[in-house]
């Protein structure tokens, strides 16, 4: 597929899960493609990084479900901070384990799953719609009932994939990309490099094959598609670019210059602009 082809299958108002973690292996080319579209009113489910920041900056997010939104080396995503300060997005803030359990419930096609995470914290206070559930056994323990996080679509980025949708991560961490796919109705995978199926195992051990073709509906080859987040071992996070992004986010004029320089063209133009910037 193409980036535009994937975005063409998404609709305003959808619940969209985004893989990766913080500022690591985010499907940024797809996020940028959403920015170029008129998609809006999205519910985004993410271990958030600049994916959330950019979508919030463009006013595309109605509700965010997350455990955090961070750029790792910049603790708080600046656009997310601003959206929160200005109250422009609704937030469902849960524990990371609860987010995982919500995806697991959706993957198992259950309406909820019991979990101990979230007890004794303000998570229940800030989410009045959350409920607890009591064990029906002698222990009578009260647990958090984590509702299923059913996704209309999942977007993930991996190092390698074949044209059938078998995808491989070559970095140190799978994050929860497989679970995002299992929780979603439509699943889209972007990859650094599209290879023949038999080449996948030459690149990494069997357990690096994180998603298989039954879990994926569309594949797009997007070299440096996670930029400026990391996609180890293909590339590390572009810290200089991330600093420039975070700095520009704090100032309206600087942000419109940043948008003009990087985000108003297509993906090819973005990648060319990044190369030009790194040379100067």
């Amino acid at each position: 597929m193409s980036l535009a082809g994937v975005v063409g299958e998404l609709r305003s108002g959808m619940t969209i899960g985004i893989g990766g973690w913080g500022s690591r292996r985010k499907p940024m080319a797809l996020v940028r493609a959403i920015l170029r579209s008129d998609l809006t009113d999205l519910t985004v489910v993410s271990y958030g990084g600049p994916d959330v920041g950019l979508l919030a900056a463009y006013g595309r997010v109605r509700r965010l479900v997350t455990g955090f939104v961070s750029l790792d080396s910049v603790p708080l995503e600046p656009h997310f901070r601003r959206a929160r300060q200005e109250g422009t997005l609704e937030l469902t803030e849960v524990d990371e384990g609860m987010l995982y359990w919500g995806l697991l419930a959706a993957a198992n096609r259950l309406p909820f799953l019991p979990i101990r995470a979230g007890l004794g914290s303000d998570v229940l206070r800030v989410n009045p719609s959350l409920r607890t559930i009591r064990s029906p056994y002698e222990d009578g323990e009260e647990l958090v009932a984590m509702p299923a996080l059913r996704l209309d679509a999942a977007l993930i980025h991996l190092n390698r994939a074949d044209r059938y949708g078998n995808g491989q991560y070559l970095g140190p961490d799978p994050y929860f990309d497989d679970l995002f796919c299992q929780a979603a109705t439509r699943r889209y995978l972007t990859c650094e490099r599209l290879v023949d199926t038999k080449e996948l195992l030459a690149g990494g051990p069997p357990q690096s094959l994180l998603v298989n073709r039954m879990m994926v509906d569309g594949v797009v080859e997007t070299p440096r598609g996670a930029h400026f987040t990391s996609c180890v071992p293909d590339y590390d996070r572009d810290e200089a670019f991330q600093r420039a992004y975070a700095k520009a986010a704090g100032d309206e004029e600087a942000w419109s210059r940043f948008r003009a320089a990087y985000l108003e063209g297509d993906e090819t133009e973005y990648q060319e602009a990044v190369i030009r910037a790194s040379l100067t």
Binding site: R109, L110, P114, I115, R116, Y137
Partner: peptide, 8 residues
């Protein structure tokens, strides 16, 4: 480490 499981 949970006291029970939920299934359909």
């Amino acid at each position: 480490g949970l006291p029970f499981a939920v299934l359909r």
